[in-house]
């Protein structure tokens, strides 16, 4: 865990609660991207901002640049059967001792791109953001061997 952070708290430790909320604490959680977040230079420190108003969407907000804030949603809200793959080096980077398990030892979010002009809302299934809630370490991990699209239209959700 990096200095100044505290573990992301779950009810029942790492087990998500049985209802619709994945992170049920209602609190913000600081996380660190050791390799940074693609597209943004500078510190890899971010805060997962919980907003009851927009749940299950969270905002991934830069700790050093408040104007950098991205809406993200647990991947299970888009694809309950999402198949996450991680290399051994990525597991090591996040401090995972076992293979990743959604709803178990990792949190997995996809970045939302909201509708603008003639473009509809979409999410990036190709490169989910994976968080180890124990170490508070995170990485946006490209799914090399999958066919998940980087722009997955959410028209069917509206």
């Amino acid at each position: 865990m990096f200095p100044g952070s505290r573990p992301i708290a779950f009810k029942d430790n790492l087990v998500p609660p049985s209802d619709t909320a994945l992170l049920a604490t209602g609190e913000n959680a600081e996380i660190l991207f050791p390799e940074g977040l693609p597209g943004f230079v500078g510190s890899g420190r971010f805060v997962l901002v919980y907003s009851k108003e927009y749940a299950p969407v969270y905002f991934l907000q830069s700790a050093s640049q408040p104007e950098v804030s991205l809406p993200v949603v647990p991947v299970q809200a888009v694809d309950p059967d999402y198949n996450l793959a991680m290399s051994a080096s990525d597991c090591e980077l996040l401090g995972l001792r076992e293979q990743p398990c959604l709803g178990g030892n990792v949190l997995c979010f996809v970045v939302l791109v909201l509708a603008s002009g003639d473009k509809q809302s979409a999410c990036n299934l190709m490169a989910p953001i994976v968080v180890n809630p124990v170490t508070s370490l995170a990485k946006q991990i490209v799914q090399f061997e999958s066919d998940y699209p980087s722009v997955f239209p959410l028209a069917s959700f509206q």
Partner: peptide
Amino acid sequence: LVSHLRLP
């Protein structure tokens, strides 16, 4: 959008 997103 969120009105249609639900965690299983």
